[in-house]
Design a protein around this nucleic acid. Structure first.
Length: 474
DNA sequence: CGAAAGAGCCC
DNA sequence: GTACGGGCTCTTTCGT
């Protein structure tokens, strides 16, 4: 058993002081055990000083005395602290004491950079001949249910595995890109700890108005004896009234999504859509915020293209129409936004002459959608749809749905025209696709990150090969 | 009761 | 005849 931890008789206090105070290593790995994923109160944490040596400290119900000694270690910016999911552990540690956040590393991010498809500790541990036991295999619903010894053992093992993975991954990591990534982590932590203030009076008023709307739609449906919240019942009644509906992807049911119902002449379709919209607003963005003075989110870097995601309470998809119910701490919200960012990235990547004319030389006042519209002889709105769709590897069908034009041939024609107009971009897209399919890796992002393309079907890989360098650059 | 499917919000 | 990239969450339905 390579796991050893402070607290058992196996280690002396002298040895602990030697390894963590007198002569600590320049790199340590840290793992924190919390009550649960939701309850972030730390029960304890471990520090690995080598892939086969770690020390565990209890912090619940109160810190054991040694915590006072080791916390100075975590404050030192000259010691690298490795985590697996640094945002999680650093936020939990912040409930106990201050730690340095400038000199950190994250093995989850490292694994992503190296193209690993699964990056949970459990998935990676075998790479260094180790095993990590996932929480859900411990047959408990909260870490509180585990004995102190079980908890310490898991925690020590996880920090050891983390340190081992760090040593294995480090030689292959692009240092420049990694430092960008690590610099972002403390900023995300500060943002998530700060939260966002809710204007309760405005929120409540909007909730009341939306509830009334939803109720009126619901009553109209109740009169026809169906539940507008059930896609099954919606599909059934609309079909019975003579509407034609396509099947869903799984072919198990009729598709009643917004994109399909919009085309229908039946006024009942609009009623269903009205109900769904009101219900969605309420259940996602209004009702759960009642009595919350501030809302908080968890930011994560664990995404395939290296962007930031927001969970527990997603703050990245708050409807634009609802944003007035939030209050800026400073008195003013500041927004930073590149208009048409993805198309600008496409310009940088491809060096397309027409894109440069508009964006760099300010031709047509820098308005790419108007330029495209004029060149292709289309309304600006349609040109905009096409411009955006390109970056996503769109097919004629996509254009058809987005632009609400049913003629697929016409949509295909738009795409061909676009590729003739932006020849440089078209060429870059072709090259990106070829490289993606042959190597399994997308071309580098603006930050020089190369993203692995999951080996799906060839068309899927082509779309991703175009999209990843663009998405990964924002 | 948990997983999957369907839906819809953001960029 | 045909899949649009990346996220997250909530509700209904389905299968063990």
């Amino acid at each position: 058993m390579s796991t050893i931890y402070y607290g058992k008789e196996t280690l002396t206090r002298d040895y602990f002081l030697e390894r963590l105070v007198t002569h600590p290593p320049s790199v340590i790995a840290v793992d924190v055990e919390t009550i649960s994923l939701k309850e972030r109160q730390p029960l304890g944490f471990s520090i690995a000083t080598a892939p086969n040596e770690s020390f565990y400290f209890n912090t619940y119900p109160e810190n054991e005395p040694e915590v006072e000694v080791v916390k100075t270690l975590l404050l030192r910016p000259d010691i690298k602290k490795v985590f697996h999911n640094a945002t999680f552990d650093l936020k939990a540690l912040a409930l106990l004491f201050d730690t340095d956040r400038s000199n950190i590393a994250d093995t989850n991010v490292m694994a992503r950079l190296l193209g690993r498809q699964f990056t949970k500790l459990v998935d990676l541990a075998p790479e260094i001949g180790r095993v990590a036991v996932p929480f859900n295999e411990m047959k408990i619903s909260s870490m509180l249910e585990a004995s102190n010894e079980e908890r310490a053992k898991k925690c020590c093992n996880d920090s050891q595995v983390t340190l081992g993975l760090y040593e294995k991954f480090l030689p292959d990591i692009d240092k420049d890109y990694f430092s960008v990534e690590m610099a972002v982590i403390p900023i995300l932590i500060d943002m998530s700890l700060r939260g966002l203030k809710v204007h309760q009076a405005d929120r409540a008023a909007l909730e009341a108005k939306t509830t009334a709307e939803m109720e009126s739609y619901r009553e109209m449906c109740a009169a026809l004896d169906f539940n507008p919240g059930s896609p099954q019942q919606v599909g059934y009644i609309l079909a019975k009234r003579g509407n034609f509906l396509k099947f869903t992807r799984s072919k198990k049911s009729l598709s009643t999504r917004e994109g399909e119902l919009e085309f229908l002449d039946d006024p009942l379709a609009a009623v269903v859509l009205g109900y769904r919209h009101a219900k969605h607003q309420l259940s996602h963005y209004l009702t759960p915020l009642a009595k919350e003075d501030r809302i908080y989110t968890e930011y994560s870097l664990d995404v395939s293209v290296g962007r930031v995601s927001s969970s527990r309470r997603n703050m990245q998809n708050i409807p634009v129409e609802n944003r007035y119910i939030y209050v800026p701490d400073s008195g003013t919200f500041t927004t930073g936004d590149y208009s048409q960012e993805h198309l600008r990235i496409l310009m940088h990547k491809s060096g397309d002459r027409e894109l440069e004319r508009v964006y760099l030389e300010g031709y047509m006042d820098g308005d790419i959608h108007s330029f495209t519209a004029r060149e292709l002889g289309l309304p600006r709105g349609l040109a905009k749809t096409i411009n955006y769709a390109i970056a996503y590897g769109a097919t004629p069908k996509t254009i058809s749905e987005q632009a609400k034009i049913r003629d697929l041939k016409r949509c295909a024609g738009f795409l061909e025209q676009w590729f003739r107009l932006f020849r440089g971009a078209a060429e870059w897209i072709r090259g990106a696709q070829e490289e993606g399919v042959s190597s399994g890796w997308a071309l580098p992002t603006l930050f020089n990150r190369r993203i692995k393309i999951p080996p799906v079907d060839e068309d899927g890989m082509k779309r991703r090969a175009v999209n990843y360098p663009i998405l990964g650059s924002d």
